[in-house]
Nucleic acid binder design. Structure first.
Length: 255
DNA sequence: ATGGTGGGTTCCCCA
């Protein structure tokens, strides 16, 4: 089974890139973030024609997540279903075959110290609670998506310039590690030691041209899922060319 | 001190 995660930055604007990519890569499961549309606006037909089942948790203008899968999608949950109201569509969970999927679009945070930054830290606390309370790490659990957090300097093209900046601050990194202490590991680092592998390049600074990227899209896996994971690859080709998203897809291969 | 680009709204917000 191959599972992809991709922040598409509007599923409707990105459809000319998404459809040929699905045809070429044929992943078994795709976790999409920032679909930026309501459920009823999601372009279901052309994706269904390629053989995918679809579950969405949409929102007008901002955020929105979706799961595509060739196999049946069961146990779908929209939001964290805790005692806090989900005002934004940032999490959709489901089961496909023997894999429990958690698709997340983590709050960006804008800048360190901003109200959005505090919201990000609070949101990650909620996510941690979800993983502790609703998952058994003896199962194959795959949490993936846009985490808007780097793990360490290896994930940053210019670590000194980004030191304690948004996406790279110690508090964000600690909050992400706390989500993972339920029993999740960064699957990319099972396979790749060296730095310089990125998943996001800012449009505003034309970061793609100089490969000024950050690695903020991740696969976090429970031990049984990690054992089955034989590769995690970043599809840089999808970030190139005409009207790309600012994120590259990441594809995990499970034996 | 704060731009730059891109997407979706609505005359601006968020990334």
């Amino acid at each position: 089974m191959r599972i992809a995660t991709w922040n598409v930055n509007s599923v409707r604007a990105r459809l000319p890139r998404i459809l040929p990519w699905l045809e070429e890569k044929r992943p078994d499961v795709v976790l999409l973030q920032e679909i930026k549309c309501l459920d009823e606006q999601f372009p279901r037909e052309p994706i269904e024609e390629l053989g995918y089942n679809i579950e969405t948790f949409g929102q007008k203008t901002y955020n929105g997540v979706a799961i595509l899968a060739k196999s049946r999608i069961t146990d779908v949950q929209r939001g964290m279903r805790d005692d806090v109201e989900d005002r934004e569509s940032r999490v959709i969970t489901a089961t496909v075959e023997d894999v429990m999927l958690v698709n997340v679009y983590v709050v960006n945070g804008q800048e360190v110290g901003a109200p959005a930054y505090e919201k990000k830290l609070e949101w990650l606390k909620r996510l941690r609670k979800l993983m502790w309370e609703q998952y058994m790490m003896t199962e194959k659990v795959v949490m993936a998506g846009d985490f808007n957090v780097t793990f360490d300097d290896r994930d940053v093209y210019d670590p000194e310039a980004w030191r304690e900046k948004i996406l790279c601050s110690s508090l964000e990194r600690e909050a992400l590690l706390r989500v993972m202490d339920a029993g999740l590991k960064d699957a990319f680092r099972k396979h790749v030691e060296e730095g310089g592998h990125y998943t996001w390049w800012d449009f505003r600074t034309r970061a793609w041209v100089g490969d000024h990227g950050l690695r903020i899209d991740h696969f976090l896996m429970s031990a049984p899922a990690l054992r089955a994971c034989t590769a995690v690859e970043i599809d840089r080709d999808a970030r190139d060319g005409e009207k790309p998203s600012d994120h590259a897809p990441v594809i995990a291969t499970m034996e």
